[in-house]
Design a protein around this nucleic acid. Structure first.
Ligand SMILES: [Mn+2]
Ligand SMILES: [Mn+2]
Ligand SMILES: [Zn+2]
Ligand SMILES: [Zn+2]
Lengths: 149, 149
DNA sequence: TACTTCATTGTAATGATTACAATTAGTTTA
DNA sequence: TAAACTAATTGTAATCATTACAATGAAGTA
């Protein structure tokens, strides 16, 4: 439930001495309810109606606060701006090369890859990043449709 | 041999109607000889001595030309600026969380991950991106040394 | 040589993010 | 509760990588 997730997030913040402001509450709530991995600016615009005076700096500031608290992950792709993902379970992302949509998927960890990487490079491994790229079902449909013309 | 790689690259360019200018030659040569996945600005500064009049725009322009010709890959991490890698064999990267150094490593493809991702999301998969993060041997040494104090 | 096309250069524009100083809100203490 | 302190927000300016653009130069072609 997203209600419980919000509650837990607020507890986590309070425990690390972070004040719960209306802006923070709203940003968190929006992130939890969002399926789209929004950018800072998308969050800013989504909350404009309820918080007409909120500064875009506040969005950035608080996303950083949440990131440092481990509540939010920042996703960076080559282009444009960062996207933000409320942390629940570990998961990977698959991204549409045509429309840019980002979809979650689960996969068992890649410990074997980490082991081999560590073995051949001598690094002590902390983590890894994996993304899959392709064409989403909806863009596949459109492709077919446009070929049929 | 890096000589052969340069020659091949020049042929590829010529075949796709791209003129070989002294600047392009130098940028390619520098990229091929470089082990460090340099940024555009690092390339610019490295060639400043030989090309005191070259514009940073030329570096960016030509890196794009090379990327479009498939000769160079652009590596984008969250922070700062893109890094560029002359394309030879397919390989992955492992990145030091402390000093930022980027080291190549080879690993058999991850077809199984691509298959599963495609199966659970309905995407038609084109490619994937994988990076491993950790602490490089040199930073591990330094860590030990500073603890010993 | 004249014409055409492409490349380079210098500089201005862009756009995301951050820095900073002033103001406001929340918390603690007396 | 009021004063004092601390943290958060706001608005705006600064930063910095990258791109756009117009003018100049070089190369290729007839
Ligand atoms: Mn996600
Ligand atoms: Mn590499
Ligand atoms: Zn799509
Ligand atoms: Zn290191």
């Amino acid at each position: 439930m997203s209600g419980a997730m919000l509650k837990n997030a607020l507890v986590t913040l309070k425990e690390s001495g972070v004040r719960i402001t209306p802006q923070r509450h709203a940003i968190l709530e929006f992130l939890i309810s969002s399926e789209t991995h929004p950018t800072a600016d998308e969050i800013y615009k989504a909350l404009e109606h309820d918080f007409p005076n909120m500064s875009v700096a506040t969005v950035y500031n608080n996303l950083r606060v949440f990131r440092n608290a481990g509540l939010v992950k920042e996703l960076t792709f080559g282009d444009a701006s960062s996207r933000f993902d409320f942390v629940t379970h570990d998961h990977y992302h698959i991204i549409c090369d045509e429309c840019g949509s980002i979809v979650d998927f689960h996969h068992p960890g890649l410990e074997e890859v980490e082991r081999l990487a560590s073995y051949v490079t001598g690094f002590k491994v902390n983590s890894h990043r994996l993304e899959v790229y392709g064409v989403c079902p909806s863009c596949q449909e459109q492709g077919k449709a446009s070929k049929a013309n």
